[in-house]
Design a protein around this nucleic acid. Structure first.
Length: 196
DNA sequence: TCATTGATTTGCT
DNA sequence: GCAAATCAATGAT
């Protein structure tokens, strides 16, 4: 994992349309540096929060909570909801991808299925808010497998703009959180970004 | 300053 | 399947 941690996706990976990044993050490795080593998980489910999107925390402009969403692409945005934390990859001014679920890798503290559980499993909290996914303590690396099939559907747990199909998940993956997105509306994973 | 709400999880029916 | 937990950020007063 040390070598992989040293070759994270660069900031420009995230400087693209948010839905495109959300799909392209599926199947990649989320790596957490911890004292004396690393822990990691494979991303299997994401959601896009775009501009002009009333479900987006940043839709009404910068606030104390969402200010990290206005940092550069590749910034990690961590927020608290109820009693847990959730993490996002910032893609532009006030847009981000919520990392919803992952398959366990090595070194996890607990089950990473679900956005709150994912943060808990990787030990991600307020201390990591605003750090860089390109050179911070939490990074994303690797490439999705060829031919990955992606399901899409409405996002989970929101009350505004509920109909937008901005939730993406690896078809058939047992670590996708419930309820699963519908199997129709399939979309092939985009491989437009070539990692250096 | 006050009331409302929530990008969730958990446990109980 | 449904509701409680539980509290800070947010928006209204």
């Amino acid at each position: 994992m040390r070598a992989a941690f040293a070759r994270p996706l660069p900031g420009r990976f995230y400087d693209r349309p948010t839905t495109e990044v959300a799909v392209d993050l599926l199947g990649r490795m989320l790596i957490r540096r911890v004292p004396g080593g690393f822990s990691f998980a494979r991303i299997v489910e994401t959601e896009a929060y775009t501009s002009g999107d009333r479900a987006n925390h940043a839709d009404r402009g910068p606030t104390l909570r969402n200010r990290m969403m206005f940092g550069p692409p590749g910034t990690l945005y961590v927020y608290r909801i109820h009693q847990v934390h959730c993490m996002n990859a910032v893609t532009g001014h006030g847009t981000a991808v919520l990392l919803r679920s992952a398959e366990p890798g090595i070194g996890l503290a607990s089950d990473p299925r679900g956005p709150g559980r994912l943060c808990r499993a990787l030990g991600v909290g307020p201390a990591e808010n605003g750090t860089s996914l390109a050179d911070g303590p939490v990074r994303i690396t690797g490439a999705p497998p060829p031919g990955l099939v992606v399901d899409r559907g409405p996002r989970v747990g929101i009350s505004r703009d509920v109909e937008r199909p901005f939730r993406f998940a690896i078809r058939g993956d047992p670590w996708v959180s419930s309820p699963r997105p519908r199997s129709r509306g399939r979309a092939r994973a985009q491989r437009s970004f070539a990692q250096s």
